[in-house]
């Protein structure tokens, strides 16, 4: 099946980034196609390569980049990103900044669309 995912919260502050990552990983292991992960609201903060957590903690941004390496489209909402100081200069590998049209297209193309958020 084709799955689309939206992440509505920032990393570390809220568990939704972790939940979305674990879900995407489990879905891929079961052979499902992820049509994309859309980062919205504070979720856009998942995409900055300036993220530098302590050594003994998980690196949420790096984990997403690894998912991106496997061919999953990681889309950061441009309107939400601009508001929060996220641009191409700080973007981690595997992410791309694009418009809300991508959210609509994921919603249309996916058999299942799962939202992770919010507080």
């Amino acid at each position: 099946m084709k799955f689309g995912v939206m992440v509505q919260e920032g990393p570390y502050q809220h568990e939704s980034s972790d939940s979305a990552y674990q879900f995407v990983k489990a879905a891929m292991e079961k052979g499902h196609e992820i049509v994309g992960v859309f980062f919205y609201h504070d979720g856009v903060i998942n995409s900055t390569k300036l993220t530098d957590p302590q050594q003994d903690d998980r690196n949420i941004v790096k984990r997403w980049s690894e998912i991106g390496e496997k061919g999953v489209d990681l889309v950061v909402c441009i309107a939400a990103a601009k508001r929060r100081g996220i641009n191409d200069d700080v973007l981690a590998p595997g992410f791309r900044i694009s418009g809300l049209g991508q959210l609509t297209e994921m919603a249309i193309n996916a058999d299942r669309f799962v939202t992770f958020g919010a507080s």
Partner: peptide
């Protein structure tokens, strides 16, 4: 507010 922004784009589809 951001939900509303997404609705406006969806209208075009």
């Amino acid at each position: 507010f951001e939900g509303l922004e997404s609705v406006l784009i969806m209208g075009a589809y």
